[in-house]
Design a protein around this nucleic acid. Structure first.
Lengths: 252, 252
DNA sequence: GGCCGGCCATGACACAGATCAAGGCAGCGT
DNA sequence: ACGCTGCCTTGATCTGTGTCATGGCCGGCC
């Protein structure tokens, strides 16, 4: 375990070997849902020049660690990442799952140190965007500044949805809501909204939703028994989307 | 109730009569914890000129309503405000309490419409800061831009703390954590951290913490019986701060 | 190829907090 | 002054989910 941690960390990302992993925002098929969304032509070039890419993270590698100096925010290019914070007694609370085209790490801005950690759920390619450069750039590009404000605002509203979910909804509603969220985000990337593989374990799902693994298991079984889903381990097939939405019962 | 709503709303704030309520950031004793924190001299003047003040909100007045066009963020000058979102089935989820010197409304940036509503818990004076002006200003004042990013980032980390609290902590831990948070914020304003009046009802507390009123009541009674607090309705006296921190058990 | 460790499923039981019910109290409008 | 209404407290009971225990499965590693 400590061996794994050793070859992970911020040091990887943003290190010198970026020539090996040259991919440009131009040719990235995520550009329309990712940071470049607000930019074009020369402005995109300027963003491009500050973005750092590095060799892919392996499953379980840390992208950044709670308490580490905040330097960059990160865009997921492929794979999937979970963000989590460690509570005083050493347990962890998963605060979000991040899929390709999504940005994470913004919780570090306020204090200058990351307020959470992030770990790859599977082999993942990540773009690191040094925040001080981004900040300087955004002072000159109103569209970019606005986009950053919007990204952070969206993170806030999504956290508030999770707060509501945890505070008001029963186990089945929480699970159904998460599945619908993943389905919707898949659709945004032109992937199937009805058939997909969950990159995270039941443990992570339970942790994120404030439930135990056993409860997650039971809910999956029940949804399967009722013909809403076909579940084969991490492989999910939504058989009756309307029923899933009914099960989510306003969770969004 | 509808009468109350009618004389509330965004229209009040930002309306023409601001000459009546002239107070400047210069003389506001909150300036060191509020937006002006990052500014001085001429820059402060420029911020000053875009801030709008209006007549105080009365208890239960709405500051803004979920779905209304997003135009401003708001700073609490006096009183207290709760933010909440309404779930599909009409129940509400309180997402935060805001005290003097604190900023709310940033969840509206991402979609251009407020993602939550805000209501005065008692008579409250509020400064409205039109966001498009603020955005333009912050492109010229790097310190302000950074401060805005930090404010939003702080909102994110605080939401994540609440998520963790809801997901992992028992009733007593949640209540103790909220009390400690309020105490800490009082201290920041040079008020007592051990004796204060809660501006919100038990109902709001329960709603915020994902618990029922009855449970809140029982926890207060228990903490009182154990000599941790003296509770007289909304008046709280922290008798044993160490015990309260133990009760919070890592919540903060 | 077989063993081992992590993950997942399912059942029996326990418990924290929800729900239901009843009553007290304070503030407000008439 | 009165009664009304909303808020708070406390008790009795119920229930969804946690906890504990067991066993199966899959994938990695020797």
């Amino acid at each position: 375990m400590s061996a794994r941690m050793a070859n992970s960390s911020d040091a990887n990302i943003g290190s010198a070997c970026s020539h090996e992993y040259r991919v440009s925002c131009d040719t990235c098929r995520l550009s329309q849902i990712c940071l470049p969304l607000a930019l074009n032509g020369e402005d995109l070039d300027r963003l491009e020049r500050i973005i750092q890419r590095s060799k892919p993270l392996q499953k379980n590698d840390l992208l950044y660690r709670e308490g580490a100096p905040f330097e960059s925010i990160y865009a997921v290019r492929s794979g999937a990442v979970k963000a989590f914070r460690t509570t005083g007694d050493g347990r962890e609370q998963v605060t979000g799952f991040y899929f390709p085209g999504e940005i994470l790490g913004m919780d570090g801005i306020s204090s200058g140190a990351h307020a959470s950690s992030a770990r790859a759920l599977e082999t993942s390619a990540i773009c690191a965007i040094p925040f001080d450069s981004l900040e300087r750039l955004s002072a000159h590009l109103p569209g970019l500044q606005r986009h950053l404000f919007q990204l952070m605002s969206r993170e806030i509203t999504e956290d508030q949805l999770l707060i509501t979910l945890l505070s008001k909804n029963a186990a089945e509603e929480r699970v159904a809501t998460l599945l619908l969220s993943i389905a919707r985000r898949n659709a945004r990337r032109h992937l199937s909204a009805t058939q997909f593989r969950l990159p995270m374990s039941r443990i992570d799902i339970g942790n994120y939703l404030g439930l135990t693994v056993e409860t997650i298991s039971r809910v999956f079984s029940r949804l399967q028994k009722n013909g809403v889903l076909a579940v084969d381990n991490k492989e999910i097939h939504v058989l009756d989307n309307a029923a899933l939405e009914r099960a989510a019962n306003l969770g969004t």
